[in-house]
Design a protein around this nucleic acid. Structure first.
Lengths: 211, 211
DNA sequence: TAGATTGTTAATCGATTAACAATC
DNA sequence: TAGATTGTTAATCGATTAACAATC
């Protein structure tokens, strides 16, 4: 579709545009100029216009952008208007938090399964879904074809399970384990979350705050 | 100290270097060349040498880098050798997961307090610490002087609490609320975590995976 | 129409990579 | 010493910003 390889820097900014547009829409506004939006978001108007024009001319000269329709367009670009099936692997503290905390629906995902290897967890209910044994994941994937997995497991377990999941057709990973999936597999996409890294960056920045 | 304003792109990579060096050290290795490390990390050797040389010449021609001492140096740059006091605001699912899940000590933080406004949570114990009423936060901060806060609260509450915390001397935020702190306050540092944004980026990338 | 604001090209800025002399 | 590998400069590449003609 829009596939002339858009730069990752642009893609990374799209969700943030989407969020601001949601808020503006919720506030009852109907139109906004790139200059006004740039003010609100703390980026340049130039960047906003450049970013949006990677995908098409969504604005109108002399008027600006229609908030609702721009939101819809960005949603389409992000493919959140199509529902993707998602599973969560590992339902310890973090897995439970993620499963119950995130509004998957709004981002175009349907949470369809939760898995753990720990006996004690199996059968528990999280967000209305039973926790299943990791042993049953092959059958589950062959039947339901999830495309996306959230990995909330430690590094050591990650390697083995990732191998299985890639073979079972999982294409996208939200990865909380510290195992570097993207170094191991091609043709999958990975978003890594490293709280520890962010805490270290904070540590550096606090220490180097001027004054 | 190293304060000729290092670019954020470099800083962002430091924790990852640190992690790889930890692993190499744990694997019993003592030295590594930029070429070998670049291979392992999936980045160029040139970038590694450039990055490190922002802070000093840690290597030795003809030899490479000593793993342990490079790790220590990067730790110092990141300021993780000094303990910083940290509090967690909001102990719902996510706050509890963060509080019990993250190894704060290794990143130079000490978790000293947990706060919530919900009566039912107050007095509960998480990671050995009692959950305190948010009402008591002023006194607590004046007594213990935490520098860093993890915000695990919804957007609406965030505004008010952030205002308080900034006034109480909090300098760094690991921010899970979707309230844009860095737009509101100067002279604080913020790391934002938006799982939702990452899911949307995944969604885009899965959709635009070639073949 | 006149004013506003986009879409888009050109200029600038910053980050990454390549190359190689210095040196262990 | 000879070989290896850094530190560092120069070249390239990409991303951001500025400017302005097109146009609603």
């Amino acid at each position: 579709m829009y596939n002339q390889s858009i730069s990752p820097s642009v893609i990374k900014r799209l969700p943030r545009y989407y969020r601001f547009l949601e808020d503006l829409e919720a506030a009852g506004m109907t139109r906004i100029s790139s200059a006004a939006l740039s003010e609100k978001m703390g980026i340049t108007a130039s960047q906003i216009r450049q970013d949006l024009n990677c995908f098409g001319g969504f604005g109108q000269q002399g008027y600006g952008y229609n908030i609702s329709s721009l939101k819809v367009e960005i949603g389409k670009i992000l493919n959140i208007d199509k529902t993707k099936k998602l599973i969560v692997i590992g339902v310890g503290n973090l897995g439970k938090a993620i499963a119950s905390h995130i509004n998957f629906e709004d981002k175009g995902y349907e949470l369809i399964g939760l898995f753990d290897k720990k006996e004690a967890f199996i059968g528990q209910t999280v967000r209305g879904l039973p926790v299943r044994s990791i042993e049953t994941i092959d059958d589950f994937c062959r039947e339901h074809h999830p495309s996306t997995a959230v990995l909330c497991i430690p590094k050591d377990n990650a390697k083995e399970i990732a191998y299985k999941l890639v073979k079972l057709g999982i294409k996208g990973f939200l990865n909380f384990s510290h195992y570097d999936l993207s170094l191991t597999y091609d043709n999958i996409v990975v978003e890594n979350v490293h709280f520890g890294d962010q805490l270290m960056i904070l540590s550096y920045n606090i220490n180097n705050l001027e004054n």
